[in-house]
Design a protein around this nucleic acid. Structure first.
Lengths: 156, 156
DNA sequence: CTTATGGCCGAATAAAATTCGGCGGAAATC
DNA sequence: GATTTCCGCCGAATTTTATTCGGCCATAAG
């Protein structure tokens, strides 16, 4: 199944990724189409899973999540990075991202917790439980200047 | 100005961060309140900027953004990490995140581009333009197992 | 005790989403 | 080249939803 997006699809994506709650009527005006046609396109983009979901961005500080860290994880299996470990890591709610990376380390994960104590607890209690994890290297974020997940969408 | 969120606010946040497009009526049912009351709460959360925005998650591959990388950046000013460099980095659309980090390096940035060639171009043309940047260390992502920005919201 | 204040309710209204029949162009089939 | 099929779009009708607003209740302040 091939996915091909035309110019208008890309326009739509560009608009709604910046503002998921724009009204369908306004969206239709922006791309110069009938609301029903635009709705149809959006539904199809959802079906094709080009659109993966609609989320609300919440200030982490407002809900007392003050600690952000990146952790490089090395696994004992060496070459082939354990998919089992990846699955276990991904299952933790504090873990926002799990990436397979090139280089000596196997994974890079992004973790958000309430404070340093809870990060410590996570590493001691959760990461140590995963048998393949042999070592970790943690980078603490002191301040976040920019954080968005918006991606660049080509014009055409 | 102090921000205090009660149990229902947290409930609301928890629901809408997973699904920004839930209807206000349904949201009201979930928290067992009148739609008007819930709307009022949401508006206040927006004003307080607890809610920072509503975004649509788009599959990067569908829009031909296949390269993801994390770059550690060291700056020449040493101790006090340059806020000027941070601003310039944050201005680049390919740069999704800019973090001040603890340790020898100054910044960690997350970058998404179409391919390795455009990542190379970004580093050569854009990063080199920033005077304070003295060295970079790039980690290429081979595969992303999990990527979400949902944060843990306490029950109370 | 009286008077704000803030949050909630619920009905009324305005606005939006959604449905659906039909139109027209493009491509495929004959 | 005519016919048929398919797909995307339009626009009006309908349903659903958001939004507004007056009033109620509880709490706290005067």
């Amino acid at each position: 199944m091939e996915i091909t997006l035309d110019k208008i699809d890309l326009q739509i994506l560009n608009i709604i990724q910046a503002n998921a709650k724009i009204s369908n009527a306004d969206l239709a005006k922006e791309v110069k189409m009938a609301p029903s046609a635009v709705l149809e396109r959006v539904r199809k983009l959802e079906q094709k899973e080009v659109i993966k979901g609609y989320t609300t961005q919440i200030d982490p500080l407002a809900v007392k999540q003050t600690m952000l860290a990146f952790i490089f994880i090395r696994t004992s299996v060496g070459f082939a990075c354990s998919t089992n470990a990846a699955t276990l890591l991904a299952a933790l709610p504090e873990v926002q991202e799990v990436h397979h990376i090139a280089g000596e380390d196997c994974f890079l994960i992004k973790v958000r917790t309430a404070d340093s104590a809870s990060l410590m607890r996570l590493m001691r209690d959760e990461l140590r439980k995963i048998p393949e994890v042999s070592s970790t290297k943690t980078t603490i974020v002191l301040e976040t200047v920019k954080e968005q997940q918006q991606i660049i969408i080509p014009e055409k």
